[in-house]
Design a protein around this nucleic acid. Sequence first.
DNA 1: CCGTCCATGTAAACAGTTACATGATTCA
DNA 2: TGAATCATGTAACTGTTTACATGGACGG
Lengths: 196, 196
Amino acid sequence: MLNYIVLGMLFNGRLTGYDVKKWIENGIGVFYKASYGSIYPTLKLLLDQELVSLCPGDEASPRQKKLYEITPKGREAFLDWLGQPIEAEDSGGRQSHLAKVYFFDVLPEELAMRQLAEYERKNLQYLNRLLALERSFDSPDNHRHHYYKMSTLYYGIGIIRETLRWCRHARMKRPFHELFEGGMAYEADGEPDYPH
Amino acid sequence: MLNYIVLGMLFNGRLTGYDVKKWIENGIGVFYKASYGSIYPTLKLLLDQELVSLCPGDEASPRQKKLYEITPKGREAFLDWLGQPIEAEDSGGRQSHLAKVYFFDVLPEELAMRQLAEYERKNLQYLNRLLALERSFDSPDNHRHHYYKMSTLYYGIGIIRETLRWCRHARMKRPFHELFEGGMAYEADGEPDYPH
DNA sequence: CCGTCCATGTAAACAGTTACATGATTCA
DNA sequence: TGAATCATGTAACTGTTTACATGGACGG
């Protein structure tokens, strides 16, 4: 995963390992974290695979810092990864789909559309599985004695429904704030009213 | 993580390693997977820590199969874990909050409430951070040239909003299907209409 | 007696994190 | 001149997955 994130960050220009971290932090940083302990070894690996290269010490630049550049082979590998279908049930936990979509701006529009459509289809399938589960568990006894167990199922359903809404918006390239029109009741900075 | 899941599964009765897998699969299996390669070593570890114990070969039961039982120390450790605050930004990726909530039925109601309220508070904070980010990136240029990058931010906002809705429902112990009333447009089994 | 489920496990690999160690550069 | 930030890296550890290896039990 991280190897592709790094390639993605290098896609638009040369960076040091240190910079890569910065770019990750204020890019996908909201939902993906990476430490130096993983970034530097990853860069070394990418270097071995010739997916990135070291820029020679330009001019009188203070050397000990290493500028990395993505190679044509690296671009190819990255775009290939971007074009691979997104998994709806990210078993690995990591929200890998966001990591991919984040870079879709560099993808030909048509391919991005196909990817999103496929992702939407998978989510719809997943939703139907969850709805079937819900029907099979839908008994007064479960709602009484396994309220929280059930709640996790409903959480899953809610998240997938939201994901589908998002997919449709993205596929239509509509402005996203439309998603939140009406009932945006969470703007306040305040605390929820919880028992003390 | 898995160690607590296993303890949770053993909380309501003795199981073999094989059974544990089964229970995980048709319990939290929707959002958490575990392989034998992790379950068996975990059981061994829990045994070393005396959080579980082996039931002696009952009667003339065909032995080679190992029945595990949670110890009082194990119950204590499990309940302690359940009582620890849930992280809103699960950096590890794993939807750890669901794993915890799944077991909340065994928690004293008041503690479950406090946990959910705290979780809601963290999510609200998180949402506000995302909304601040959104405001800082909200320019026509970004919406044009970084549509997909922006989309991931809006996805995050959507998911957190949905999480908050879910939290409020859970805290009020309301029936969850209320969450989906009106516009449940996804019941169909069909494919989305995507370009071919 | 054959396939499928029950049942246990290990070895290697993977994908990272955490904590540490080191030193240069910048700027107040 | 000292603190913050820039910059690179390693070693040990964690928590898993994947693939493999083995064999008993049970039903058709």
